[in-house]
């Protein structure tokens, strides 16, 4: 049974359907990357998965259990198992790095403060941000903020981690530090869905790659298939245009 199963998932913004019957599955610990041109529905897919944008159709299962996006209880359960790292980091500007990482485990999950702070220190050390735990987000560079955001997402002990174009808002020289951090997480058994334009990185870390266009899933397969021998002409066209640049 797949760890995460997406069946015919659709979503609309007003009258426009931005996600059209997307079906995907990821096994436990798998790294599934989603590629495609801007506006192809990749970020919407992640927003729908974590319940920030309501689906207009389809179903999502986690370890065989159906997620009911209209139920607060089901959403709460879902977000206890799934975390997201946003493109713009979305760190709470009124909280220090340490508080950003610990606020959800302490206030929402009601775990003991001491234990959470110890875990947060370890996580911040892991992403190379231990020395900045008392800083506020605005005092950090984009890459540093994104690494704190990754630590914050990990602090809730997620089974599934979503990355939404996490390097898109960064200076080119900051991209590697974030990719390095994600690379270090790929062998920890967390199921990851990565939306990215960093093709070399996607090719290296993914177990499978899904190509999306105009809200639809075009093709899904191992990186070698998608990058070297795509079966669909749209995938070929996209990959070759990206690799040319």
């Amino acid at each position: 049974m797949p760890h995460l199963e997406i069946v015919s998932l659709s979503s609309r913004y007003g009258s426009e359907e931005v996600l059209k019957e997307v079906s995907l599955a990821a096994d436990q610990g798998e790294v599934l990357s989603v590629i495609g041109p801007s506006g192809s529905g990749k970020s919407t897919l992640l927003r729908v998965l974590i319940g920030l944008t309501p689906p207009s159709g389809g179903e999502v299962f986690i370890a065989g259990e159906r997620v009911d996006y209209s139920s607060r209880r089901s959403l709460k359960g879902l977000r206890g198992k799934m975390s997201i790292v946003f493109q713009e980091y979305n760190l709470f500007q009124n909280m220090t790095v340490m508080r950003n990482v610990t606020v959800a485990p302490i206030k929402i999950k009601k775990r003991p403060r001491e234990q959470v702070e110890r875990q947060a220190e370890a996580l911040l050390a892991k992403v190379g941000m231990a020395h900045k735990q008392d800083a506020y987000p605005e005092e950090l560079s984009g890459g540093q903020q994104q690494r704190v955001a990754i630590a914050r997402a990990l602090a809730t002990n997620p089974e599934i981690l979503l990355f939404d174009e996490v390097t898109a808002a960064l200076d080119p020289e900051r991209v590697n530090e974030v990719l390095e951090t994600i690379r270090g997480l790929t062998n920890e058994g967390i199921t990851m869905i990565i939306v990215s334009h960093e093709m070399a990185f996607v090719r290296e870390v993914s177990t499978r790659v899904a190509m999306m266009d105009e809200g639809r899933l075009v093709e899904c397969g191992p990186p070698a298939q998608i990058f070297d021998a795509p079966r669909q002409s749209r995938t070929r066209e996209f990959v070759s245009s990206i690799l040319r640049h």
Binding site: R79, V103, A104, K109, R152
Partner: peptide
Amino acid sequence: DGAHALNF
């Protein structure tokens, strides 16, 4: 969004 994603 950040708060909701963390279950606030």
